[in-house]
Design a protein around this nucleic acid. Structure first.
Lengths: 197, 197
DNA sequence: TAAATATTTGGACACTTGTCAAGATCTCAA
DNA sequence: TTGAGATCTTGACAAGTGTCCAAATATTTA
């Protein structure tokens, strides 16, 4: 991470970042991530190597940046208005729609990267950070039973589990079915939290 | 993976494998995984680079092998005698004791590798495969409600979540406390499965 | 506008990576 | 004990990686 991605970039810098992003996504539809070289990305995007290293530490860093940008597209801001146990379903809802909207690209990528399960690992990590914010200990009520970090991670894991089952492992099924699995897995916690209100 | 790790190795090969394993574990106690080079491992173990590549594709592959060996040390064989929902607690029990026994080495490693969360990623994957076997669909009873792969992964995630919270995130606490968190997170599923008997 | 300042570019460098074919060394049956 | 076959070891090679610096270009400031 050579620079702060949350800061605003100049128009020129954004053009460069977009070009490398496009080059990587394009390369990923044709071969596994491990086989992609920085040289190749520079050829595809018509930028010299030094420019690449101006922005990124290495190709993993670029991947990291791409996940960051995609993650930002999942809008969760309105969660503050909802009750804690509802927030999880807001997250599920937005993430489901987002992934469904990008299913074409996703399928092309995992076709060559089915075994590189770590590809999506940092996406998980980033989403996990956001989920942890959503279940701030000051707001949630499970404190006395289980540490809130465990609850937040468990929520994050479970949402991602059903989403990965649906979209990554080639399982068909409606959004409602997937939601039902999520509700079933979290049945106990939600029943308890409802009871506490 | 250059060769089948489940096959028996010759004495000479085993000596070489052990040397590289020791070199990696030793290196990990001094610096982050990313900064370790194959050259360094060869210097430490007094083997030429080509020998390393004889056994492993790269340093990730060696790490993979090390997790495989460690994983084999967690003995779960007797699970067939127990009821499905008890197996999870057998897994928890064995894994907890195993990690606790290696806590010294583990702490030295994560001291330099706290941010390299993917280090343990493949360990998770491998343990997940074993957990999935434990909850074979022919034996488990949740088929009609949630696909059994989801249940198995959810069990695996949850056990690993509480173990990581306990040992990786620097939280103290008794085995009983940790077990209580696990039971709480899985409360609904177990209540249901008990009911079905 | 023009000078001052910052960013981008290209090439050179030292180093790491993964492969290969040839040579050394083990192993086991005769 | 011996020697054919299998396995293990090795140095050299081509390609990739990440850094550095000075020249070229862009951006900001006066």
């Amino acid at each position: 991470m050579k620079r702060d991605w949350t800061k605003k970039t100049t128009r020129g810098a954004q053009r460069t970042l977009d070009a490398f992003t496009a080059a990587m996504l394009n390369a990923l539809t044709g071969k596994p991530f491990e086989q992609i070289t920085v040289n190749e990305l520079c050829e595809k995007s018509n930028y010299p190597r030094a420019t690449f290293y101006n922005y990124f530490d290495d190709k993993y860093d670029l991947l990291h940046y791409i996940w960051h940008c995609l993650n930002r597209q999942i809008r969760l801001e309105q969660y503050e208005e909802t009750e804690p146990e509802q927030r999880l379903f807001v997250l599920f809802d937005r993430a489901y729609d987002f992934i469904e909207a990008h299913q074409g690209t996703l399928n092309r990528i995992i076709k060559h990267n089915a075994k590189e399960s770590f590809l999506l690992f940092h996406f998980r990590v980033q989403l996990g950070d956001r989920v942890r914010e959503m279940f701030d200990p000051n707001i949630c009520r499970y404190r006395d039973q289980v540490p809130h970090e465990i609850i937040a991670d468990h929520y994050c894991n479970t949402v991602l589990l059903v989403l990965e089952w649906r979209f990554l492992h080639g399982n068909d099924g409606s959004k409602e079915d997937t939601l039902r699995y999520l509700e079933h897995l979290l049945g106990a916690l939600n029943a308890k939290s409802l009871h506490e209100f």
